[in-house]
Nucleic acid binder design. Structure first.
Length: 620
DNA sequence: GTCCAAGGTCCCTTTGGCCG
DNA sequence: CGGCCAAAGGGACCTTGGAC
């Protein structure tokens, strides 16, 4: 019977107990007692109640489930819930606060950091997710998460474009930790240095400090100081491995209103600072000076043919320039999107740097000692002497012979000086059609009148002029009434390149103009003896072609440097040397000749590759 | 456009106090 | 007691307005 009717078996005792419970309540009522009195007596557990108390709070699963069930009933009941919630809230808040206290204390050791502990490695690896992510403060985080996002927003699916609450939450938590103890400054030290490095004003840093985002300005100041010390230590270590050393001058101008005298600060303080560059793929044996010396002794001087671009280089330059010209068209005219993705319209690589390569470099302290003096760099020299035998031999030789200065021109200065040189050659006067002065005034460009204007101002002005000239050439050469129609005709990439080559020939190649050798005896027709008519020269057109040609060289140089392809720079070096020589900038033409000579005669291929890769990345 | 002067503003450094 | 920070001093730069 028990197995056949389980339901009735369960229900019957229940209804029976309900009945007896009612009896108990009626009895209590008769005694003017309530069920609450009963419960409180049990909880107090005095005398004979002790057994009931123990049963109520017994850890046995059945007893525990019963008690929790009672509490559940209370809070799930429509009438009970408001009462319980109102009562429980202050207790719950206190519990949460206590929990947060414990969590925050536990997190302290993970965030503890002093300004003296800052190192270059710390800056490189600083990441708020790594610092704050693993911190176990789940209660605080839950509270902040609840505060930071509405329930509606939580329910929505998240995409990559959704607000990044996570990082902000970590920063807020970091602020709270810092608020608790200034020792917990791991995040603030990183953000403070970031602020300083971005040139944030002192006032703003003060504001950030008060919001708990950074350490104080004073602390940042002292960190920068100690970072400089540590960086010098690293540079010392790097100087024991294959490296290159570059110099740049630094000129600090101070107030010109200060009275000048022998012991006062001078108007302009000149100094020098060195930069140590770690070399890419360099092995110590490749850096040995011996083969280079041998090559130098065997070498023969450059001749004129070395100042002409080789056929391969010329071919390469023409194809690069054709691509450049097409890219100018596709940049400004819509409708060439498909063509511009074509492989034929990309710059063919010549000798690119490895993808994603970054040269490691170590700037040294600026020294006010004259650049030729060795005193300012004793530290460095000492560090080197402690280095390996091979390296020392190389360094000492270079140092003593000052051969390092052969490399002292960096690609950025090369490009900048080439632009200045083009400016000098084509500047002309306001009233000369096609002169740069006239074009600048058409474009309303200012501050380009000086001898050495700002690089970026000049570059953007010249770039606009080149683009304008080339676009005009496209309009003339495309055989359509407008460039938009040309785009609609959907020319193939090869059509575009053909047209670009026509543009190079017609618009960027000046006519050869020969003046008579003897101006008193102009050339005559050999048969009739009649004086030949003077060839009519379109000066403006010719000058514009010259300007376009020069700007294309500059554009190629700048672009090759930007993409890190020294092969493309090497191709046009002879032409650039001639341009420098032509505009009277002998220093740079001589420097390029030195470089060409070294590449051709002195350097081993490995050594040349290592140094030329560096050459691109050195900006001074 | 260039020069000059004055006042405001900002930055760096020092010093003493406070806090964990 | 060590380390950090607020306040203040000192110095140089920047802006403004005027003269030429």
């Amino acid at each position: 019977m028990e197995t056949s009717d389980p339901i009735s078996r369960r229900r019957r005792p229940k209804s029976r107990s309900k009945g007896s419970l009612l009896t108990v309540l009626r009895d209590l009522q008769g005694l003017r007692l309530t069920v609450v009195d009963l419960l409180m007596a049990i909880i107090d557990g005095n005398g004979e109640f002790e057994g009931f108390r123990n049963a109520l709070f017994s850890p046995k699963p059945k007893n525990r489930a019963a008690l929790l069930g009672l509490l559940d009933r209370l809070i799930q009941d429509d009438k009970g819930r408001p009462i319980v919630e109102k009562w429980v809230f202050p207790h719950a808040l206190r519990l949460v606060c206590n929990k947060v206290h414990v969590e925050m204390e536990a997190a302290k050791p993970c965030l503890r950091m002093y300004t003296t502990e800052v190192s270059p490695e710390f800056i490189e690896n600083w990441d708020i997710h790594q610092i704050m992510g693993p911190l176990a403060t789940p209660t605080l985080r839950s509270v902040l998460e609840a505060a930071g996002e509405s329930k509606i927003s939580v329910a929505k699916p998240k995409s990559t474009k959704s607000k990044n609450r996570f990082t902000a939450l970590l920063i807020i938590m970091a602020q709270i930790h810092y608020l608790r103890s200034w020792h917990s400054a791991r995040v603030q030290i990183g953000l403070g240095l970031q602020a300083w490095a971005c040139g944030t004003s002192r006032q703003m840093i003060d504001v950030l400090h008060r919001t708990g985002l950074t350490v104080s300005y004073n602390s940042i100041s002292s960190m920068v100081q100690s970072l400089a010390d540590r960086s010098i230590e690293r540079a010392k270590a790097a100087s024991l491995l294959p490296h290159a050393l570059a110099y740049d001058n630094i000129n600090i101008s101070s107030s010109i209103y200060v009275e000048q005298g022998p012991n006062t600060m001078s108007k302009v303080q000149s100094g020098t600072f060195g930069v140590i560059y770690e070399l890419l793929n360099a092995r110590a044996e490749d850096m040995s000076i011996r083969p280079l010396i041998d090559n130098l002794q065997r070498s023969s001087p450059l001749d004129m043919s070395d100042l002409r671009m080789t056929p391969a280089a010329r071919q390469s330059y023409l194809s690069q320039t054709a691509v450049t010209i097409v890219r100018i068209l596709t940049k400004y005219v819509r409708g060439f999107e498909i063509q511009s993705a074509d492989v034929a319209l990309q710059h063919p690589p010549r000798r690119p740097l490895p993808e994603g390569h970054k040269t490691v470099f170590h700037p040294l302290r600026a020294s006010t000692i004259e650049e030729a003096s060795i005193d300012g760099n004793l530290l460095l020299t000492n560090a080197r002497i402690r280095g390996g035998q091979n390296i020392r031999r190389k360094d000492v030789s270079y140092w003593e012979r000052r051969e390092i200065f052969q490399l002292a021109f960096g690609s950025f200065h090369l490009a900048m000086n080439l632009l200045w040189c083009i400016l000098e050659t084509h500047r002309g006067k306001q009233n000369q059609t096609g002169s740069l002065t006239q074009l600048f005034s058409i474009l309303e460009k200012t501050r380009l009148g000086g001898e050495q204007p700002d690089y970026h101002t000049l570059l953007s002005a010249l770039r606009q002029i080149l683009h304008g000239l080339v676009l005009n050439a496209w309009r003339m050469e495309c055989n359509y009434s407008s460039l938009a129609d040309f785009a609609k005709a959907d020319p193939t990439p090869n059509d575009l390149l053909d047209c670009a080559r026509r543009i190079i020939n017609k618009y960027a190649t000046p006519d050869a103009v020969f003046e008579p050798v003897n101006s008193k005896a102009p050339p005559k027709d050999p048969r009739s003896g009649v004086e030949l008519p003077k060839p009519s020269i379109d000066v403006v057109r010719n000058n514009t072609a010259l300007l376009t040609r020069d700007l294309l060289y500059a554009s190629e140089l700048v672009d090759a440097i930007a993409t890190g392809d020294f092969g493309r720079v090497e191709d046009i070096l002879p032409a650039i040397a001639c341009m420098f020589r032509g505009s009277g900038s002998n220093n740079y033409s001589t420097e390029i000749l030195h470089l060409l000579f070294n590449i051709k005669e002195v350097w081993t291929p490995v050594f040349a590759y290592v140094l030329l890769s560096l050459h691109l990345t050195v900006t001074s």
